[in-house]
Design a protein around this nucleic acid. Structure first.
Length: 689
DNA sequence: CTTATCACTTAGAATCTGATAT
DNA sequence: ATATCAGATTCTAAGTGATAAG
């Protein structure tokens, strides 16, 4: 039997030992707690009755054909998309068709115009990419033109009066050393700067920027006094807040100009919004969790570091005067417009399009279609992995148990990571012995597994869950003769797992289970919680609760907002006020009624009605506030955004809104509506995931 | 097979903005 | 008019997974 031997030397780094006691308490309060999860959803998601749909996959796997410019009309996919809800998504300013692009507005343009005639004026302005055919040859675009990225503003030296002190004595720093010092000064209030690794990394990199004199003088970070610099920046930001309206307006306009100039590109005849057109400014690296590289200097990116990607026949972006790009290439197999290599991890960073763009939207749509295909065969896959728990091969058993966790608990795949390069976090395949505990009996339950590990972003996953006996026995087997730091699944990695999944279903990978289980959970929860008779706020509470169930499943946590207690209190004050108002209004109503009883005239009758209305209105307002309070309380440590944006098929939400008469704006804000325009346009009230 | 590289999605925190309260 | 706060937006780190290279 082969044994995988990945060294686990992480605790042998002698350098940091002496400082360990210092972090202890800090680390502790960083730990995030989470409530126990309810995992009852599993049994609910295996409905075998899949409504037969008119071959949804067609859109994604069109028959191969020549899609070079010659025959654009043929590629048009006559999808039966109704147009009547277009009024919903009115002003999407930036999705206009591009007119300036002379050489390239050929067939598509003509077709568009012809198409548009049927629709109303405003509708022909937004491009419904989802009604068009997708390219089949793996190319991501045919034409791409942009102006390149916006660079970080150059360093502005501090005014002479702002001093840095070393060992109590003022010291004028060279510009490069001063710049790096300001990065530290700006973070002085942050807990980061007290951490030893951070300080060590910072000091090491800072010294690299110093002149040799500075280097020989400044040898101890503890003797450095940045407080004047820190005060200066605080004053600056205060001054910025105090600026007059005109000045603020000016800055706003400048930003808008930059956005208009650099924030858009032209891709295949359409003007599309760029996601991140600004290059990341230099600064100190802030990792998440216990990151070995925190505090390192993130260097300034120059034009010479940037690779530009665009069409050969486009107007190439110009580098700033006196500089050159690293390279200009024309690769239409990728979606990025510019890239550079970052110096902390040596990874590549990209400039890409906004989520509202065709290129992102298509991919997103496709992701949900893959998840829906999983829905059709998930029963088969589940029964297979259950069978595999009995396999005589260890690797198959491990694979099957891991897959069970991924499916049941929505764990991430868990790729291996390079040790010492990143914080020590794990996913399913990289779980170690130390991350689980087995309890043959716990309280009323049998075969309980306790998970406790740090996942992506060093967010803690803590969960106790009863599993089937067979899983439990397998886990005991996997744990035999292992040290805490050994891999739980020593015969498995994400590559093996995904290869297996690929055989079970085309396009299936571990992360599809997260998408699938998230979306199906939302759909079920909505079904369960929604009530047509509820008021709109109550319906929204139900929606948020369904969303919350998903966020809990996916372990999307957040640090409770700093102002949480306060904001709860504020809300409670409002509720109390409203309650007083209500009783006052009720009293008035009573009085009016009595008055009416006595006089029986028209005027008093009217007064009763008026008061009745008032009471009703206040009741409604009170209800709304109470619902809001409940919602907020339940949301204290749970982040809904991530699942809403990345895991929940937006068509489920759109359909729900239509079915229950909830305006889509109550569920998705403007940005979200732009991202999900395709779903808002195509989903009907009977849409089923 | 293992490892490295690349491209892309997913993630929570930080910061900004504009509506509402004072 | 100004302060406050919540929601929107921006930022960029940290994952996944395909594929190339060794």
């Amino acid at each position: 039997k082969k044994h995988k031997d990945k060294e686990k030397l992480k605790h042998s780094d002698g350098g940091s030992d002496k400082h360990r006691e210092k972090h202890k308490e800090k680390d502790k309060d960083k730990e995030k707690r989470r409530d126990e999860k309810v995992c009852s959803w599993l049994s609910l998601c295996s409905s075998p009755s899949i409504k037969s749909e008119p071959e949804e996959d067609n859109g994604f796997y069109p028959s191969p054909q020549n899609n070079k410019s010659s025959k654009r009309e043929c590629e048009y996919k006559p999808k039966k998309v109704k147009a009547e809800h277009d009024k919903k998504a009115k002003k999407r300013k930036h999705e206009y068709e591009e007119d300036e692009d002379e050489e390239h507005k050929k067939k598509t343009k003509d077709k568009k115009v012809a198409d548009g005639k049927k629709a109303k004026k405003e509708e022909e302005e937004k491009w419904k990419w989802w009604e068009e055919e997708r390219s089949t040859d793996g190319s991501k675009w045919r034409f791409l033109e942009h102006k390149g990225p916006v660079f970080a503003p150059p360093y502005e030296p501090l005014p002479g009066k702002v001093k840095f002190y070393y060992d109590g004595k003022p010291m004028k720093l060279s510009a490069p050393a001063e710049e790096v010092a300001t990065f530290f000064a700006k973070m002085l209030d942050h807990e980061y700067t007290t951490k030893d690794i951070f300080r060590k990394n910072f000091f090491k990199d800072w010294r690299k920027e110093m002149t040799s004199e500075e280097k020989s003088t400044i040898t101890d970070l503890n003797k450095c006094n940045f407080s004047e610099m820190s005060e200066y920046f605080k004053a600056q930001s205060e001054a910025r807040k105090q600026m007059s309206k005109e000045e603020k307006q000016k800055i706003k306009e400048e930003n808008e100009r930059l956005l208009q100039e650099y924030g858009f590109c032209i891709m295949d005849n359409h003007k599309e919004r760029i996601g991140n057109f600004r290059i990341e400014p230099p600064g100190l690296f802030r990792g998440r969790g216990d990151h070995p590289k925190m505090g390192m200097l993130k260097r300034r990116i120059r034009p010479e570091d940037i690779i530009i990607n665009c069409s050969k026949d486009s107007k190439h972006p110009k580098p700033p005067p006196g500089t050159k790009w690293k390279e200009v290439r024309h690769d239409n197999k990728v979606t990025w417009l510019a890239s550079w290599t970052e110096n902390i991890q040596g990874s590549i960073k990209y400039i890409m399009l906004n989520p509202s763009s065709r290129i992102k939207g298509e991919k997103d749509w496709q992701k949900y279609e893959t998840a829906r295909r999983l829905k059709k065969c998930v029963d088969r896959i589940r029964s297979q992995y259950r069978d595999d728990w009995k396999s005589k091969e260890m690797r198959i058993r491990q694979r099957a148990v891991a897959l069970y966790f991924i499916d049941k608990l929505a764990l991430r795949a868990g790729n291996e990571k390079e040790e010492g390069e990143t914080a020590d976090t794990v996913g399913c395949c990289s779980l170690r012995v130390e991350h689980i505990k087995l309890y043959p009996k716990m309280d009323e339950q049998e075969y309980v597994v306790e998970f406790d590990f740090l996942g992506k972003d060093s967010i803690r996953y803590y969960n106790k869950i009863p599993v089937e006996k067979r899983v439990f026995k397998n886990l005991q087997l996997f744990l035999e003769n292992k040290q805490p730091e050994d891999d739980l699944f020593d015969r498995l990695n994400t590559s093996i797992l995904n290869k297996h999944l690929q055989e079970l279903m085309d396009g299936l990978t571990a992360k599809v289970f997260r998408t699938y289980n998230a979306s199906i959970t939302l759909q079920q929860q909505l079904k369960e919680l929604s009530c047509s008779d509820d008021s709109v706020p109550a319906k929204i509470l139900s929606y948020n609760r369904a969303n919350r169930a998903v966020a809990i499943l996916c372990n999307h946590q957040r640090a409770p907002p700093k102002t949480f207690e306060k904001s709860m209190q504020n809300l409670q004050t409002k509720i109390d006020e409203k309650q007083n108002q209500l009783s006052a209004a009720r009293k008035q109503l009573k009085a009016a009624k009595a008055d009416h009883k006595a006089s029986h005239d028209e005027k008093s009758k009217k007064a009763v009605e008026v008061k009745r209305k008032a009471v009703q209105r206040i009741e409604e307002q009170l209800m709304k506030l109470q619902v809001q309070a409940t919602d907020r309380e339940e949301n204290k440590q749970i982040a809904l955004g991530t699942s809403k944006l990345n895991y929940l098929d937006p068509r489920i939400s759109v359909a729900w809104c239509k079915k229950y008469g909830v305006p889509i704006e109550k569920i998705y804000n403007k940005t979200q509506r732009e991202k999900f325009a395709w779903a808002i346009d195509m989903a009907e009230k009977d849409y089923e995931f």
